[in-house]
Amino acid sequence: MPEFASAVFPGAAPPGADYFSVFNLPRKLALDTRALEQAFYRQSRAVHPDRFAQASAERQQWSLEQTSLLNDAYRTLRDPIARTEYLLRIEGVTAGGRGETPAQVPPELLAEVFELNMQLDELRAGDGDPQLRTDLEAARVEFEQRLALVDGELARAQDEWDQAVEAGTGAARGASAARMAALLDKRRYMRNLVREVREALGATLGEA
């Protein structure tokens, strides 16, 4: 179990501290969310604005900033996907590992996503074609399965990252970071699609 900072007060997080260091955690992706929650509450109490009601304006401001940093850090780290996205960002890895250039997603996936969106539009337009519903139901099941597969691959890449951090191997870190970035890109499309298909099917049936 990671060693959490017993208290941030009075030193607290240095300016520009990343969310992992706020909780004195290594930059690893497996983390104990119960322990994180406890550390969040403990550290929040230490810097809580109520404790500084009589303090100088400067101190009050500091307390607010620390509280808000703790909140952001906790919200980001408690969610495994947000945690991974954040890690990649502070490691300087974005979409597919190559910075600003879009279109990292495989063209076949783009075409599929586009077609499915067209079908969703038709369904929403409501011409009541029963075949369309059946197709979309099938697509929903398929995309949910593929989303689960991507999540499985992502979990493996996260493990690899953690192992590379422990072993201190830079190349392995880079490789798993790039893999995670590509998987997250894919995942974003699929998650949006699954949500929209569910919504569209639910909305036209009353309840899915």
């Binding site: 979409a95 597919g96 879009p102 279109a103 990292q104 997603v105 063209p107 783009l110 075409a111 996503v113 586009f114 969106n117 997250l184 890109d185 894919k186 974003r188 499309y189 998650r191 949006n192």
Partner: peptide, 13 residues
């Protein structure tokens, strides 16, 4: 042209 933005999941044709 069919392109996409992974950051937000947009697709554009």
């Amino acid at each position: 042209g069919l392109v996409g933005a992974p950051e937000c999941g947009d697709v554009m044709r």
